[in-house]
Design a protein around this nucleic acid. Structure first.
Length: 275
DNA sequence: ATCCAGGCAGATG
DNA sequence: CATCTGCATGGA
């Protein structure tokens, strides 16, 4: 692993880092492919990434933010070895997805984004989020920031319907009003179990969406979102419900379960059944 | 046209 | 507690 930080630039290379796999595995919705890499927005931060061979160059005003966001200082090689040690049956999936990083995203952005994700497809999820940002977020020269809670509360339910949110408009409207600063501070300080219960009190947030928020927005590795892809990959005679799948892998992998889940998801979507 | 997409809420056995 | 149904929208 090599990392060089300049004023507005991070030059990075690691065997266990692949920006494309990291962005395209369903954990993040605010990115666009460019000719030479990707443009990424997180909260009110922007980053342009250029990929050249194994080296990725990030150009941004806030290098510290994106070093943390992409977990560039973390030793994923060791994490991956630990997963394989605890769950050898996942070896192939880990190797195939070893470039994926769990992004450290903003909790509010994750709550709203994954409410929208329910019974939806990724291109449309991206579109709805993008239009919400355009309608309510701060304008910058690179585009629109994700709205603050206050800005979200400025959108009426019919505004949200007009932005294409469909029946989720009511959930977003309600959720924006639920997640006040008191809620958010409880959420970030609670243990994973209690945080899950808090999230389930938000309209439009069920177990799967809550797991995604915990994993992608609150850095909780001891979660295991089970969606339709995971069902395809893991349902069996013994693990015949989503809850059993979830408990089995969290029990086996602890706070590495969430990362393993990303590898399985990636493998199921991109590798299994192809080539 | 019909089905599906990183499920959820509400109602019913 | 487990299972069933309706759901906005747009692309395949």
């Amino acid at each position: 692993m090599t990392i060089k930080t300049e004023k507005n630039k991070i030059i990075y290379e690691d065997d266990c880092f692949d920006l494309s796999d990291t962005l395209e595995c369903g954990q993040v919705f605010r990115y666009e492919k460019t000719a030479s890499g990707y443009d990424i927005i997180s909260g009110n931060k922007f980053c342009r990434a250029e990929i050249c061979g194994r080296t990725t160059t990030f150009i941004t005003d806030d290098t510290d933010y994106f070093i943390h966001y992409f977990a560039l200082s973390e030793d994923y090689k060791t994490l991956n070895e630990k997963i394989i040690e605890s769950a050898p049956e996942l070896t192939e999936a880990v190797i195939a997805g070893r470039g994926i990083r769990l992004l450290r995203q903003d909790p509010l952005e994750m709550i709203i984004s994954f409410i929208i994700s329910a019974n939806n497809n990724i291109p449309r999820i991206k579109g709805i989020i993008s239009r919400i940002c355009r309608a309510a977020g701060d304008k910058h020269d690179w585009g629109y920031a994700f709205p603050t809670r206050g800005q979200l509360c400025g959108l009426s339910e019919s505004d949200l319907i007009n932005l294409g949110a469909g029946y989720r408009a009511a959930y977003i409207y309600s959720a924006a009003r639920s997640v006040d600063s008191d809620f958010m501070s409880q959420l970030t300080s609670a243990d994973t179990m209690s945080a899950m219960k808090l999230l389930l009190s938000v309209k439009g947030v069920g177990k799967k969406v809550a797991d995604c928020i915990l994993l992608f927005g609150l850095g909780r590795g001891d979660t295991f979102p089970v969606d339709t892809w995971m069902e395809q990959a893991l349902l069996s005679e013994m693990l015949n419900t989503n809850a059993k799948i979830r408990d089995y892998y969290i029990g086996k992998l602890g706070n590495l379960a969430g990362l393993a889940q990303q590898y399985i998801y990636h493998y199921q979507r991109n590798i299994e059944g192809k080539s």
